[in-house]
Design a protein around this nucleic acid. Structure first.
Length: 424
RNA sequence: GGAGAGAUGGCCGAGUUGGCUUAAGGCGCUCGCCUGCUAAGCGAGUGUAGGGGCAAAAACCUCUACCGAGGGUUCGAAUCCCUCUCUCUCCGCCA
């Protein structure tokens, strides 16, 4: 969330930002609640002060064996007043909080203005689009014919939007996870973590999924546990309520996790294949950075994610999300989109964002420099490195052959027992 | 699931017959002194959030809250009572 004082002192800027993001929010309500809260608080604290003074006086009198009954009577009458004001205060603060939690992050100055994904800004295009000499088939046809992908049985086991992999398909998924983790830990300097795949409400609130986006999540019945929608949630919460040392920044973590998403509101989109699933695997990159260097860290993070596609010989492009397409907690986001031959479009395979201090304020992650008496919020960043299921899609489609087989990218072969080609 | 012990500032750790505790003391950190260098020593400072002084930023002053979380008792709670969470020990169950 944003800093209360920042909103108070930059109302116009916040108003413009909200409209650029196409978020309808009543900022006059903010001003009213903010003022009301401070009014009540002043009276409330004055009363508590009075009670503290009187109570202390009573203690002293009693110690001397003197009578304190008149003071005790006054103190007794203060209690209920404090109680009433507390209730009022709590109500106003709850409303103010709700409003604060619904205000998205302020976009960085380099983020293009725009309304939809049509307005995203192209940053770069990498790789040659494959020439097939035949009509490229969609990944579900390729996968089912090779008997490595089985969506029918997955639907029987669980339901729509789940996948069952067989043989070389399962191996391919596992190989990709290992390849990505190895690349990021050995060549890009990330520390591997393996976090819990369920998190509590506090963790979901820190990273911004709650309270606004509960509909997108799976909740465990009877527990305050949620299935993680992305590794970002457990990994960013590693340092919740901690004060880090400035010299340790940036901290760079990578994690493999499955991701679960309810995909509410996406009925009818990507119904075929495994582009949009309720459960998919992802290797995530997360950074805790010094505010001064966070945008450089974003460029580096993007490069780390791109490297995966380059090594897998998959053509892609990079776009900067415009203000209207930007996620709730992000100040700036690059999407990496991989080429999908059967559809003739680029599809998102990684999203790399700088959240500045938006998540850090919610999660209370700070750092302290040597010699500094006060601490500051860190900047958090994350990106997919990459979404594994969609990487499988890209490999099956881009590396498919006329005979129905699929060439295994060179870097993956050591992870697949030397297999060069997936064939029936 | 059963029995017991515990949770206090960046870290360690005292305080639990309710009131000179304004959370002792130590470590760490910062500044200063001392000093061929380093170490040690000496002195001072050092939690977070919010409100007000103050229109804005810093400094300062002041008030309020915070001793795992939430309630309660009381004029007054780190301290007493209740509920919950987590950690540790033992038992049970278990991959």
């Amino acid at each position: 969330m944003l800093d209360l004082k920042f909103i108070r002192n930059n109302l116009e800027l916040v108003r413009e930002m909200l409209s650029a993001r196409r978020v309808e929010l009543d900022l006059d309500e903010f001003t009213g609640l903010d003022n009301r809260r401070r009014e009540i608080l002043a009276d409330y604290e004055a009363l508590r002060h009075r009670r503290n003074v009187v109570s202390k006086e009573i203690g002293l009198l009693k110690k001397e064996g003197k009578d304190a009954s008149s003071l005790q009577e006054e103190a007794k009458s203060i209690g209920p007043k404090i109680g009433r004001m507390e209730e009022e205060l709590r109500e106003v603060e709850a409303q103010l909080d709700a409003l604060m939690y619904s205000i998205p992050n302020v976009p960085h100055s380099t983020v293009p203005l725009g309304e939809t994904e049509e307005d995203n800004e192209l940053v770069k295009i990498w790789g040659e689009l494959p020439e097939f000499g035949f009509e490229p088939r969609p990944h579900w046809e390729v996968g089912e014919e090779l008997k490595i992908l089985d969506l029918k049985r997955a639907a029987k086991i669980t339901g729509a939007r789940f996948a069952l992999y067989w043989g070389a398909g399962a191996l391919l998924e596992r190989a990709l996870i290992n390849f990505m983790l190895d690349l990021h830990t050995r060549e890009h300097g990330y520390t591997e973590t393996l976090p819990p795949f369920m998190v509590n409400s506090a963790s979901m609130t820190s990273t911004g999924q709650l309270p606004k986006f509960a509909d997108d999540l799976f909740k465990i019945d009877g527990w305050d546990f949620w299935l993680v929608p992305t590794g970002e949630v457990p990994v960013t919460n590693i340092h919740r309520d901690e004060v880090l040392s400035a010299e340790d920044l940036p901290l760079k973590y990578t994690a493999y996790t499955p991701c679960w998403r309810a995909e509410a509101g996406s009925h009818g989109r990507d119904v075929r294949g495994i582009v949009r699933q309720h459960q998919f695997n992802k290797v995530e990159l997360v950074k805790f950075a010094h505010p001064d260097g966070s945008y450089n860290e974003l460029e580096a993070l993007l490069q780390d994610a791109e490297e995966v596609l380059i090594k897998l010989e998959l053509p892609y492009r990079v776009v900067t999300l415009c203000t209207g397409d930007l996620g709730f907690a992000a100040a700036k986001t690059y999407d990496i989109e991989v080429w999908i031959p059967s559809q003739g479009v680029y599809r998102e395979i990684s999203s790399c964002s700088n959240f500045t201090d938006f998540q850090a304020r919610r999660a209370n992650v700070r750092f302290k420099g040597p010699g500094k008496s006060s601490s500051e919020y860190v900047h958090t960043l994350n990106g997919s490195g990459l979404a594994v299921g969609r990487t499988v899609v890209a490999i099956l489609e881009n590396h498919q052959q006329a005979d129905g087989s699929v060439i295994v990218p060179h870097v993956l072969r050591p992870y697949m027992g030397g297999m060069e080609k997936i064939a029936v």
